[in-house]
Amino acid sequence: MTTLETASAPATTTTPALACRGLRKRYGDVVAVQDVGFAIAPGQAYGLLGPNGAGKTTTISMLVGLLRPDSGTVLVGGTDLAADPTRAKAKIGYVPQEIALYPELTGRENLRFFGRLFGLPRRRLAARIDEVLDLIGLTDRADTKLGTYSGGMKRRINIGAALLHRPEVLILDEPTVGVDPQSRKAILDGVERLVGEGMALLYTSHYMEEIERVCERAAIIDHGRIIADGTRRELVSLVGTADKVELVLDGDVETAFAKLRAVEGVVEAARTGASSVRLIAEGGRYLLPALITAVEGSATVTATQVIEPDLEATFLHLTGSTLRD
């Protein structure tokens, strides 16, 4: 595991909203999850990244009590999920990956049903449903059947059903799959607001930019194990600090390419077309003037692009680019 010791949960005296340790689950000979552990403080957003089949859903199923781990512990707000599942589950808001709602009921009826399961008294529940409908922007469609909703609206009700009881920790399993940009923005805005209000968040997604936007910390899980865990900066540093620099040249490209390879700081160079080259360079963004100067006399630089290392690069670096499932 490429765990960064410096990237452990921030020092805090408060009880983690969600903590798991040594989680393990196997199906026959296949170990789906092994030694998974992390902690999320109140008001902290934590991302869980992994390719398909990496163990994300199995981990989440154990965290919300749908699956009993072979070993390991889950503490929700300090309550052991195995010892007191009812109390622990009452602190969790779980939003499954699929739209897990009743299409023949209205949005309000769906919210009422799930709110009652969390034991909310009738009057308080009615008021809370109105608040949640307002939060997810569906007040005007609350009394129409879910079957008539768009995909984005269903996604928002799907999230709203997990918010009624004001959970201490919200677990979102790929909440923006298949939604339009407007709904996606609304969902992310809402999630950020909730985190800002002190709710802990566990967020899984295949969209790296969502994790980068919402989560201050993230773990990368593959083959059932957490292989990296830290803040965005810490995770990105795992693939080094080299930038990718792409140049388009006009003139004697061959000679210019040889000169560019010789510039100090350039660790890798490749021709990507008749007039284009790609360089991997430490601090590439600061090296641009030197690169332009180096080709003078042979060619002129007509276009440049600098790509800094990001979470996606880290993810692909750690999990490989081989297709899964």
Partner: peptide, 12 residues
């Protein structure tokens, strides 16, 4: 439908 898991994830 996924609603069974959702019920089971509730404190019941």
């Amino acid at each position: 439908l996924g609603t069974l898991d959702r019920i089971r994830a509730a404190p019941v």
